[in-house]
């Protein structure tokens, strides 16, 4: 029953979010701020994680594919496909569910408990639309760029660890990351990440918007946003993969 009512409340909130803004001027004032906050400010964490995952992916693949029967480009190929298919979309989004999801839930939750949302409602402003729409749109727009950035840095990280630890040659790695390349994987990954971006931002906004009580409850809303956002990402990952790759 709780799941049904929560789902119902979520869709009712989304119905209020996805209407034309009262003032486009206010939307376009808020939109770049959200691009910067949710997108650009996520670049450092995306960069660090992607480089290190590139490192470890290359090292692990090399360690586990040392059979002389396997071609020399295997390490590069496995690193590339892992990054393209799963890491730079799904795993990155799981990490961003923590960073961005908690940020959105706590920001909106704090506005709720300090009556700022009530103040907007009293003024006659559609608070759901004003507060949530720019966040969802900005994060969905920024996500493909973050994914491409992550893919690039992951591959660069893999290259450097291969060269620095002398487990790979430049030639073998470059052949590997180009071998049997399927451009559709990029499309699949970008589309998937945009859906995950929508889930992360809308679920976090939902938990923040309906937060009540005090600081402790904002913390709970933030935790719920991250946990439920992550579970839905995993669930939708299976669904999208089944639909797009089978």
């Amino acid at each position: 029953m709780s799941l049904i009512s929560t789902t119902g409340k979520y869709f009712l909130l989304m119905e209020r979010v996805f209407v034309l803004p009262d003032r486009w001027k206010m939307f376009f004032r808020q939109f770049p701020k959200e691009l910067e906050k949710l997108g650009l400010q996520s670049l450092p964490i995306v960069a660090i994680i992607s480089i290190f995952i590139g490192f470890i992916m290359t090292m692990q693949t090399k360690l586990n594919t040392s059979n002389p029967l396997l071609p020399v480009y295997t390490t590069g190929l496995v690193t590339r496909d892992t990054l393209l298919l799963e890491f730079s979309s799904t795993i990155l989004c799981l990490i961003l569910a923590g960073k961005v999801g908690s940020n959105i839930a706590s920001e909106i939750g704090t506005m709720r408990i300090t009556e700022q949302i009530d103040a907007l409602e009293i003024m006659g402003v559609n608070s759901a639309n004003y507060l949530i729409l720019p966040k969802i749109v900005a994060f969905v727009v920024m996500m493909p760029f973050l994914v491409i950035f992550s893919m690039g840095l992951g591959l660069v990280g893999g290259y450097f660890v291969g060269i620095l630890t002398s487990i790979l040659t430049t030639g073998n790695y470059l052949i590997g990351i180009q071998y049997a390349f399927v451009p559709y994987y990029i499309f699949y990954s970008l589309l998937k990440s945009m859906i995950f971006a929508f889930l992360i931002s809308s679920i976090a906004a939902y938990y923040g918007y309906y937060a009540y009580g005090g600081a402790l409850d904002v913390g709970k809303a933030s935790t719920n946003a991250v946990v439920n956002g992550s579970i839905l990402i995993l669930f939708f990952n299976i669904l999208i993969t089944k639909l797009m790759l089978n």
Partner: peptide, 20 residues
């Protein structure tokens, strides 16, 4: 109609509720 009415309403909240 409620939204139109609310444009005629001003409110001072207990915690001021200013936008941070």
């Amino acid at each position: 109609e409620i939204r139109i009415l609310r444009k005629e309403v001003g409110m001072l909240f207990q915690g001021s509720a200013l936008f941070d």
